[in-house]
């Protein structure tokens, strides 16, 4: 990539972060009153909303009902004004469908679906502003929303992206770093057990470097976990004060 230095000699990235540093994360649970669970997250300039409905009866055809566990239904959409260039459709394009499927996979691994047989859990995520790491922001927002809905989960799901530039692994890529076209890895981690709920890598990367990048992503995901845990505790604390306990 000519003209743009993603990592300076002093070890700083374009936006002034160190290689393993996350962008500022701010989150809030219980944004909407009508949904069963909702959350909002800002990771740097990436902003995402997640809403959860359910567990409820299967909507539409009953044939979709699973006899032994709940159906997890995800829709990813990104606002038409979220990206630099205006999008034509908020959802239904190939990328959104793929993202929906990935989210579904991720959350089927984390939610204790066998507790709610024959029912459905809807997770809808909406990206309001995209600046890299949309998948990670969506997973993190959805985790908080599922918790806000009170749906039992094995663990938090914390996601983070990582890249690889000049022999160094970079955590939490911004849009500029993503657009540079290097290898990119998205990881969703269940931090307590260290299990991986989703792993995806695009572009090629030498096998020898994989461990380093994976390690960077996992470390960043654990950092995200610390932050999300704090948000959840804060939310529960505020809610219990309101209840007068």
């Amino acid at each position: 990539m000519a003209g743009l230095e993603l990592l300076s000699d002093q070890g700083y990235r374009v936006d002034g972060r160190r290689a393993g540093e996350l962008r500022k994360i701010q989150a809030r649970m219980g944004v909407f009153a009508q949904a069963d669970g909702s959350a909002y997250i800002e990771q740097g300039n990436t902003k995402a909303l997640a809403v959860v409905y359910g567990p409820h009866e299967i909507r539409g055809s009953r044939a979709r009902a699973l006899p032994d566990r709940a159906l997890v239904n995800c829709q990813y959409s990104s606002a038409t004004f979220s990206t630099g260039e205006r999008k034509r459709r908020p959802h239904g394009d190939r990328k959104s469908c793929e993202m929906g499927l990935q989210l579904r996979q991720t959350f089927e691994a984390a939610i204790l679906t066998q507790l709610h047989p024959r029912s459905q859990i809807d997770i809808y995520v909406q990206v309001l502003q995209a600046d890299g790491g949309t998948y990670a922001a969506c997973v993190n927002a959805a985790t908080l929303a599922v918790m806000d809905a009170g749906i039992p989960m094995r663990d938090f799901v914390c996601a983070c992206s990582a890249g690889f530039v000049d022999g160094t692994a970079l955590a939490d890529l911004s849009h500029v770093e993503e657009a540079a076209g290097g290898p990119q890895l998205a990881l969703a981690l269940l931090p307590a057990s260290g299990q991986i709920a989703l792993l995806e890598m695009d572009a090629r990367l030498h096998e020898d470097h994989l461990e380093q990048v994976l390690e960077a992503a996992a470390r960043a995901a654990r950092d995200v976990h610390t932050l999300l845990d704090r948000v959840v505790r804060q939310h529960v604390h505020e809610a219990s004060i309101l209840l007068g306990d």
């Binding site: 009508q34 829709q75 908020p90 809807d122």
Partner: peptide, 16 residues
Amino acid sequence: FFVDCSANATPEFEGR
């Protein structure tokens, strides 16, 4: 003008 009734508002708005 474009109005997106997102599924956030109600599950009925999912898909189309």
